[in-house]
Design a protein around this nucleic acid. Structure first.
Length: 487
RNA sequence: CGCGGGGUGGAGCAGCCCGGUAGCUCGCAAGGCUCAUAACCUUGAGGUCGCAGGUUCAAAUCCUGCCCCCGCAACCA
């Protein structure tokens, strides 16, 4: 579920900037190397490659169902697109003197097949296997991170913006505690499943140089540079989980510095999801699988997208609960927005279906505030603007008792609310694209068919009464069906 | 003294940076409306804002101390 939060968050941002007319390159991917994959494959009697080839399409499928509008999906096992960049980067690091081969001595547990830290030990023994670990020495390539401390402090203050703020502070305090050099490779004997170190047949790259590099390998870096303008001339934003934040904040810019590549501009760090207030874990049996949520809403990704956007302030941990998502679906989507659309359209249709919009006074004042929140990626705040507008419109509908008015005035009032709904749909477009389009289609606006195209922009449509060709509304349909008896 | 987040009506949260009638969603109660997806609108009940001190004319909001919950503690993704 965590990765879904991340992809939806990134997708909402990507869609927003596209809608603003920016050129956007939205990349996601999978890190498919490492000892865990290797071991799982052994257990299942598969080759590691077969294992990831089986699993990765499942993720891709899921993202597609969630309407994640990624332009590129990078797999770290992709030897054509990914590996050449990684190898080139490694060499650049080596040439710049950032890498050094050293021997590393650690406490190795045979049962776990990995090094343990002193703090993990209980009475000097591995807590899982209850055996004392042995001292093992192996050769590793190390990346000299420590010497970048001062530089990192500087760029984290001035150039590399971490969102939210408290994470930036956290990272800086991490720097104050001092950095260690980082192991960048493993002997083939302990890690076979990875990218071989160039010119060193005994060593395989460890995760950092491999996985982090996906951001630029997807742009053709060091090879054909096909899309490198999306790095060099763009605002680069990484969207990641708090668990890997420090590596993105520290190791990655240091690597880029050595390679002579621009450092990223922003690091958006999101929190984790709990399930009914508890950490999701297999032993507790409270893990929520995204496909279940999709199925719960009949394959419609929008309730989940809306939930994640609405309930979880960017950067904080959030909670997933079936009760909450149902409640939000009913109150916001169904009763507030869906019902408003329906009552308006039904009445307009009874009056012949014509729009009679008074274009003199605007009924939408929230675009500026909305755009400000979106630009700052405060998506949980941003999404409240269209919701509030719908809320207000329901009130207005009652206050003015629109259904009782005389025909002429009734048409004007109905058109007023319909026009508001047009704006609501535009604001919702980054969050729940399918629904936003459905609303627009029912309203009958002229651009409804084009809304989901990647080159659709909203600027021309933000004005009050901007859609001059809009004269008639479409047929009202139920936007969000009632939920069946809850699970 | 490891680091960070949090403790606000029954539930989930906002407000705290930039002190001054405690707000939102859900739930609950009463009323209204009937255009609409038993939806929509209004009103109400319910909070000593974790605890204890301090600053101030005034503190949920600033300062100090304490208690409780939750993550992370570095190569392990």
């Amino acid at each position: 579920m965590g990765h879904v939060l991340e992809k939806v968050l990134a997708d909402v941002c990507a869609r927003w900037f596209r809608l603003k007319g920016d050129e956007v390159r939205f990349q996601i991917g999978t890190d498919e190397h490492g000892i865990k994959i290797q071991r799982t494959a052994e257990k299942e009697k598969l080759s590691p490659q077969d294992l990831v080839d089986r699993n990765v399409p499942l993720f891709q499928e899921l993202y597609k169902k969630l309407n994640v509008s990624a332009d590129v999906f990078i797999r770290t096992t992709d030897q054509k697109m990914h590996w050449p960049t990684v190898e080139a980067l490694w060499k650049k690091l080596q040439d710049s003197g950032a890498l050094e081969k050293r021997s590393y001595t650690g406490l190795y547990c045979q049962g776990c097949e990995r090094f343990l830290t002193k703090k993990e030990l209980v009475d000097g023994k591995c807590p899982i296997h209850l055996t004392p670990p042995e001292e093992v020495t192996e050769q590793n390539w190390f990346f000299k991170l420590k010497e970048q401390e001062t530089w990192l402090k500087k760029i984290l203050k001035d150039e590399y913006k971490i969102i939210p703020d408290f994470r930036a502070k956290e990272t800086l305090s991490l720097l104050d505690q001092g950095l260690e050099d980082v192991s960048f490779s493993r002997p083939k004997t302990s890690l076979a499943w990875g990218i071989p170190v160039p010119d060193d047949t005994e060593q395989v790259m460890y995760v950092w140089c491999d996985a982090l590099t996906n951001y630029i390998s997807g742009l053709g870096y060091f090879t054909d540079h096909a899309e490198s303008k999306f790095w060099d001339d763009a605002t680069v934003t990484h969207v990641i989980g708090k668990d890997i934040a420090r590596f993105h904040a520290l190791i990655w810019p240091a690597m880029l510095k050595h390679a002579g590549v621009k450092i990223p501009d922003q690091l958006l760090i999101h929190g984790f999801l709990t399930s009914d207030g508890q950490k999701m874990s297999k032993s507790l049996g409270n893990v929520v699988h995204p496909p279940e949520v999709l199925e719960h809403f009949k394959g419609n990704p929008d309730p989940l997208r809306f939930y994640l956007s609405h309930e979880i302030p960017v950067g904080n941990d959030g909670d997933f609960s079936w009760e909450r998502i149902d409640a939000l679906y009913n109150s916001m989507l169904r009763n507030n927005i869906g019902n408003l659309l329906n009552r308006v359209l039904t009445l307009i249709t009874k009056e012949g279906g014509d729009m009679q919009l008074d274009t003199k006074q605007s009924g939408v004042e929230t675009w500026e505030a909305f755009a400000k929140d979106m630009d700052a990626m405060n998506i949980s705040d941003a999404i409240r603007h269209p919701a509030a507008l719908a809320d207000e419109s329901n009130k207005l509908f009652n206050d003015r008792a629109v259904w009782k008015l005389e025909t002429a005035e009734k048409k004007v009032q109905l058109s007023f609310v319909a026009e508001r709904l047009r704006h609501i749909a535009l604001m919702l477009l980054p969050f729940i694209p399918d629904t936003a389009q459905k609303i627009s289609k029912q309203l009958g606006v002229s651009y409804a068919d084009k809304m989901l195209d990647k080159d659709f922009t909203i600027d021309a449509w933000k004005g009050w009464g901007a859609d001059k060709k809009w004269t008639k509304v479409g047929t009202p349909e139920i936007l969000f069906a009632p939920l069946e008896e809850a699970k």
